[in-house]
Simulated scan of single mutants.
Amino acid sequence: MLPSGMSICSSVPDLLFLPELVFGAAVWILVACTKVVPANPQAYVMTVSLFCFISTFIWMVMFLCGAHHNQSSWVTADMVYHCAAALLYLSSSVLLAYVTVVISPFNQVNFTPYKLNVSAVVFSFWTTLQYIVHAALSVIRWKSF
């Protein structure tokens, strides 16, 4: 059964909504704080993190309001969304790690952008792990439904 209202704070996969939001916001804030010469990879990371942040927030609000009446389609939609979000976050985390390695501190006088990028990589992979766990638990819930 999909939870509704405040019961999302007590169900195991849906308990991950808040950490996904917090660490996802940290990713896009840290990426927004840095300026890298090839801005295209970070634009993708920023797009993925903002899309997942907004989508997860909307998804959580819909669960809080109890907008899911047809259980089977919502369980499937929950599984599909979290699997897609996990794949998107994984691709953006790998790309962000690559950009961070390319702008190593040995190429710069100021280490601050490098430190911010390393922090963004750590938060990005942590958020990816949360989305992967949420997706796995959503698949288990989908199979048992």
Rank of each mutant, 00 (worst) to 15 (best):
N70P: 05
V109Q: 15
V31T: 06
F23W: 14
A97F: 14
P113S: 01
A97R: 04
V12A: 10
K115V: 07
T127H: 04
C52I: 07
V48S: 02
L137Q: 11
T112H: 09
S49W: 02
A135G: 08
T34P: 12
F123S: 11
S92N: 11
M79W: 03
L2T: 00
M46R: 08
L88I: 02
A97G: 06
F53C: 15
P19H: 05
F51G: 12
A97S: 10
A25Q: 09
M46D: 07
N117E: 08
Q130F: 13
I29F: 14
S49P: 00
G66D: 02
L21R: 01
L129G: 15
V102E: 15
S124H: 07
I54R: 14
Y81G: 02
M79H: 02
L64C: 09
L50A: 10
L96F: 01
P3N: 07
I29T: 08
G5Y: 02
S11Q: 11
L116G: 06
Q130S: 09
L2R: 00
I29N: 08
W28E: 00
D14K: 01
V122T: 06
T100L: 07
L88P: 00
M1W: 00
P105S: 10
A120C: 08
F125V: 10
N70K: 12
F63V: 11
A77Y: 09
W74G: 03
I103R: 03
S55R: 07
W28A: 00
L137H: 08
V48R: 01
W28N: 02
K35Y: 12
A84M: 08
H68K: 08
F63D: 14
Y81I: 01
L50F: 11
S144W: 00
A136D: 14
I58S: 08
V12E: 02
P113Y: 03
S73T: 14
N40L: 07
V22W: 05
L96N: 02
H68F: 14
V36Y: 06
Q108K: 13
L30R: 05
T56S: 11
L64I: 11
E20L: 15
F57E: 04
V75T: 07
L96K: 01
T47D: 10
F125L: 09
T127D: 14
L88E: 00
V118M: 03
I54Y: 15
T56C: 14
V31R: 03
T100S: 08
Y131M: 04
L2H: 00
L16S: 08
L21W: 04
L15Y: 04
C83V: 15
V75S: 06
V80W: 12
L129N: 10
A86P: 00
V99W: 00
V37T: 06
D14C: 07
V122H: 04
F51E: 12
A39D: 08
N70S: 06
M79F: 06
S104P: 04
F63L: 10
S91M: 06
V45S: 12
A84T: 11
M1C: 04
S104Y: 10
M79T: 01
